[in-house]
């Protein structure tokens, strides 16, 4: 009777969830280490005293890398860690929650998501799928990538074979780049042998880990195509709704902790890696020529306008993002001018 009741309540109050991940075992930040999904699982487990646990599975352990979205929609796993732009094949609007080429960097993008109405739009885009999403880890600014030859003008892009997936590939294609979709592990051998002329990956720390500096020496630092890269914590809506409020708060708090941890960690290791690359490994790091950047900026605007024209929801997200960006740009210029 009365005595057993609290125990029963506590039993119903326990949640053991599975979390899959689009990144493989051992990947720093996206799988292990500061701000990673495994770190998130640890945080929530200890905050909740074991009432909510996440059993983490890296890509390939339970399901392949890009199957997490469907698994969460179907409710077979409760959560998935990835980037929303992997799901842009379901709705192009998903692109905007990860990043936009020539869009806002970390402070602006996060400001838009948390305080500018971005997360409400994210909920609106995902509502038909029965899932909710939260900003997760973040790499900060990424790099334009590795080129075997110096880029001096837009002409150099004509027929340039570049490994570049996703939206930025489309922008490069508009400038005459021959877009290649090689999987991650084949980037190095292909670049080293000249099968491709250029490749994009992440930033100094991760690129150096892959050894790309041994395949090409021209490292373009502009990072126009990924001014930041926001991770996504995806949770099945029914499961989310079943959580009591205190556990919901812990999930939100742990995700924000991972956001700060991962971003600050990347800022720290990227600086160190870039110095190593330039000073010890003969890498030439420089931005793309201004003329090239201007042309990429135009092509990006055209590409985004085309995509936004296809779907009213994409249009809505696009306009909202750009309106916020216009105001934030004025502010961030002041910050940058110091």
């Amino acid at each position: 009777g009365m005595v057993a009741a609290p125990a029963v309540v506590r039993a119903q109050d326990k949640f053991a969830w599975k979390m899959t991940n689009a990144y493989g075992p051992g990947a720093p930040m996206t799988t292990v280490g500061p701000g990673s999904p495994t770190r998130f699982a640890e945080l929530v487990g200890s905050m909740s005293g074991g009432r909510l646990t996440f059993q983490h599975f890296a890509a390939g352990e339970l399901i392949p890398a890009f199957e997490g979205f469907d698994a969460v929609v179907a409710g077979t796993v409760e959560a998935n860690a990835a980037n929303s732009y992997f799901w842009s094949g379901r709705s192009f609007a998903a692109q905007y929650f990860t990043n936009v080429p020539f869009g806002m960097s970390f402070p602006g993008h996060m400001a838009w998501l948390y305080h500018g109405g971005g997360m409400e739009l994210w909920d609106e885009v995902y509502q038909p799928f029965g899932v909710v999403a939260f900003p997760f880890n973040n790499t900060g600014t990424q790099m334009t990538g590795w080129f075997r030859k110096e880029v001096t003008s837009v002409e150099d892009f004509k027929g340039l074979k570049m490994r570049i997936p996703g939206l930025s590939g489309k922008v490069y294609a508009a400038l005459g780049v021959d877009v290649r979709l090689l999987p991650g592990p084949e980037i190095f051998p292909a670049l080293e042998r000249g099968v491709i002329d250029a490749a994009e990956f992440v930033g100094p720390y991760s690129d150096r880990r892959l050894g790309l500096q041994k395949a090409a020496k021209n490292y373009y630092t502009t990072g126009w195509h990924e001014p930041n890269n926001a991770g996504e914590l995806l949770i099945n809506k029914a499961n989310w709704d079943s959580l009591p409020d205190d556990l919901k708060t812990m999930v939100r708090t742990a995700a924000m902790t991972c956001l700060v941890e991962s971003y600050t960690w990347c800022e720290s290791v990227n600086g160190a890696a870039l110095v190593e690359l330039v000073e010890k490994e003969g890498v030439i790091a420089r931005p793309l020529p201004p003329e090239v950047i201007a042309r990429l900026r135009e092509a990006t605007a055209d590409t985004l306008a085309t995509e936004a024209g296809k779907d009213p929801l994409v249009r809505k997200v696009h306009d909202h993002y750009m309106a916020f960006k216009a105001k934030h740009d004025r502010w961030s210029e002041i910050a940058r001018s110091v």
């Binding site: 979205f69 469907d70 929609v73 799901w87 094949g89 379901r90 997936p165 996703g166 489309k170 294609a173």
Partner: peptide, 17 residues
């Protein structure tokens, strides 16, 4: 159900083109 879900989500390539 897995195929039906892909159909319902109108799943396509995440790469433009």
């Amino acid at each position: 159900p897995y195929v039906m879900l892909a159909h319902r989500l109108n799943e396509g390539s995440p790469n433009p083109g």
